[in-house]
Protein backbone atom coordinates (compact mmCIF):
# COMPACT_ATOMS: atom_id res chain seq x y z
CA UNK A 1 0.00 0.00 0.00
CA UNK A 2 1.45 3.32 -1.00
CA UNK A 3 1.54 6.15 1.50
CA UNK A 4 3.42 9.29 2.32
CA UNK A 5 6.38 8.79 4.60
CA UNK A 6 8.55 11.27 6.44
CA UNK A 7 12.24 10.41 6.23
CA UNK A 8 14.04 11.45 9.40
CA UNK A 9 17.12 10.69 11.43
CA UNK A 10 16.31 9.66 14.97
CA UNK A 11 18.98 8.61 17.46
CA UNK A 12 21.48 8.21 14.66
CA UNK A 13 19.23 6.06 12.49
CA UNK A 14 17.47 6.97 9.26
CA UNK A 15 13.85 5.92 9.56
CA UNK A 16 10.53 6.38 7.79
CA UNK A 17 7.43 7.57 9.62
CA UNK A 18 3.89 7.38 8.28
CA UNK A 19 3.00 11.02 7.63
CA UNK A 20 -0.53 10.46 8.98
CA UNK A 21 1.03 10.06 12.40
CA UNK A 22 2.88 13.36 12.27
CA UNK A 23 0.99 16.55 13.03
CA UNK A 24 3.81 18.82 12.01
CA UNK A 25 7.55 19.32 12.05
CA UNK A 26 8.75 22.23 14.14
CA UNK A 27 11.84 23.86 15.55
CA UNK A 28 11.55 24.15 19.30
CA UNK A 29 12.70 27.33 20.92
CA UNK A 30 12.14 27.47 24.67
CA UNK A 31 11.71 24.25 26.57
CA UNK A 32 10.69 24.46 30.22
CA UNK A 33 12.41 21.61 32.06
CA UNK A 34 10.42 19.38 34.39
CA UNK A 35 12.09 18.41 37.65
CA UNK A 36 11.59 14.76 38.69
CA UNK A 37 10.46 13.75 35.22
CA UNK A 38 11.92 10.61 33.61
CA UNK A 39 15.20 11.15 31.74
CA UNK A 40 13.65 10.98 28.30
CA UNK A 41 11.14 13.74 29.13
CA UNK A 42 13.01 16.95 28.37
CA UNK A 43 10.30 19.38 29.38
CA UNK A 44 7.26 21.19 28.08
CA UNK A 45 7.12 23.74 25.34
CA UNK A 46 4.48 25.93 23.77
CA UNK A 47 3.69 25.57 20.08
CA UNK A 48 1.43 28.57 19.67
CA UNK A 49 -1.29 27.99 22.23
CA UNK A 50 -0.70 24.29 22.57
CA UNK A 51 1.56 22.91 25.28
CA UNK A 52 3.54 19.87 24.18
CA UNK A 53 5.70 17.47 26.14
CA UNK A 54 9.17 17.20 24.67
CA UNK A 55 10.64 13.70 24.37
CA UNK A 56 14.35 13.05 23.90
CA UNK A 57 14.30 10.11 21.51
CA UNK A 58 17.93 9.16 22.17
CA UNK A 59 17.27 8.79 25.88
CA UNK A 60 13.98 7.04 25.23
CA UNK A 61 15.77 4.49 23.07
CA UNK A 62 18.69 4.16 25.45
CA UNK A 63 21.09 5.65 22.91
CA UNK A 64 23.97 8.04 23.39
CA UNK A 65 22.72 11.61 23.10
CA UNK A 66 22.91 13.08 19.61
CA UNK A 67 23.62 16.71 18.78
CA UNK A 68 20.61 18.81 19.67
CA UNK A 69 19.09 20.54 16.66
CA UNK A 70 15.84 21.61 18.31
CA UNK A 71 13.96 19.99 15.45
CA UNK A 72 11.03 17.84 16.48
CA UNK A 73 8.02 16.09 15.07
CA UNK A 74 4.68 16.56 16.79
CA UNK A 75 2.72 13.39 17.44
CA UNK A 76 -0.50 12.84 19.33
CA UNK A 77 -1.12 10.00 21.75
CA UNK A 78 -4.13 9.52 23.99
CA UNK A 79 -5.22 13.13 23.91
CA UNK A 80 -1.80 14.62 24.59
CA UNK A 81 0.68 16.10 22.16
CA UNK A 82 4.38 15.35 22.17
CA UNK A 83 7.36 16.86 20.44
CA UNK A 84 9.72 13.98 19.63
CA UNK A 85 13.24 15.29 19.05
CA UNK A 86 14.82 14.26 15.77
CA UNK A 87 18.24 15.11 14.42
CA UNK A 88 17.10 15.79 10.92
CA UNK A 89 14.08 15.61 8.64
CA UNK A 90 15.11 14.93 5.05
CA UNK A 91 11.99 14.62 2.98
CA UNK A 92 8.42 13.48 2.64
CA UNK A 93 8.02 10.91 -0.14
CA UNK A 94 5.51 8.31 -1.30
CA UNK A 95 6.61 4.72 -0.69
CA UNK A 96 5.17 1.27 -0.72
CA UNK A 97 5.58 -0.37 2.66
CA UNK A 98 6.76 -3.95 2.96
CA UNK A 99 6.41 -5.99 6.13
CA UNK A 100 9.40 -6.80 8.31
CA UNK A 101 11.09 -9.90 6.89
CA UNK A 102 11.39 -12.87 9.22
CA UNK A 103 14.67 -13.46 10.93
CA UNK A 104 15.92 -9.92 10.58
CA UNK A 105 18.29 -8.88 13.32
CA UNK A 106 17.37 -5.54 14.89
CA UNK A 107 18.17 -3.92 18.21
CA UNK A 108 15.39 -4.72 20.63
CA UNK A 109 14.39 -1.03 20.89
CA UNK A 110 14.06 -0.68 17.13
CA UNK A 111 12.26 -4.00 16.87
CA UNK A 112 9.64 -2.66 19.29
CA UNK A 113 9.05 0.36 17.08
CA UNK A 114 9.44 -1.31 13.72
CA UNK A 115 6.35 -1.58 11.52
CA UNK A 116 7.94 -2.54 8.19
CA UNK A 117 10.32 -1.28 5.56
CA UNK A 118 10.35 1.08 2.66
CA UNK A 119 12.90 0.99 -0.09
CA UNK A 120 14.58 4.28 -0.93
CA UNK A 121 16.68 3.79 -4.07
CA UNK A 122 17.87 0.44 -2.85
CA UNK A 123 18.42 1.62 0.73
CA UNK A 124 15.99 -0.07 3.15
CA UNK A 125 14.50 2.26 5.76
CA UNK A 126 12.74 1.02 8.88
CA UNK A 127 9.21 2.31 9.31
CA UNK A 128 8.73 3.22 12.94
CA UNK A 129 5.77 4.12 15.07
CA UNK A 130 6.70 7.45 16.69
CA UNK A 131 4.18 6.98 19.51
CA UNK A 132 6.32 4.03 20.57
CA UNK A 133 9.11 6.48 21.39
CA UNK A 134 6.72 8.47 23.53
CA UNK A 135 5.52 5.51 25.52
CA UNK A 136 8.98 3.90 25.70
CA UNK A 137 10.16 3.22 29.21
CA UNK A 138 13.95 3.42 29.04
CA UNK A 139 15.44 0.93 31.44
CA UNK A 140 17.49 2.35 34.27
CA UNK A 141 21.18 2.54 33.34
Amino acid sequence: MEGLYLIARIAGQMVAIDSDQVESVIDLSDVTPIPLAPDHVVGISAIRSRVVTVIDSCAALGRAPAEATGRAIIVGLEGHYYAVLVEDVEDVLPFIATPLPDGIVLDPQWRELGRGFVDRDGEPLLIIDPTGIVSACPSEP
Binding site: A37, I44, I55, H80, Y82, V134
Partner: peptide, 9 residues
Protein backbone atom coordinates in the same frame (compact mmCIF):
# COMPACT_ATOMS: atom_id res chain seq x y z
CA UNK B 1 -4.14 17.94 31.98
CA UNK B 2 -0.44 17.19 31.63
CA UNK B 3 0.98 14.15 29.83
CA UNK B 4 1.15 10.93 31.86
CA UNK B 5 4.98 10.96 31.75
CA UNK B 6 4.90 14.34 33.46
CA UNK B 7 2.26 13.45 36.01
CA UNK B 8 4.02 10.18 36.91
CA UNK B 9 6.20 11.79 39.56
Amino acid sequence: PAAPQVVAS
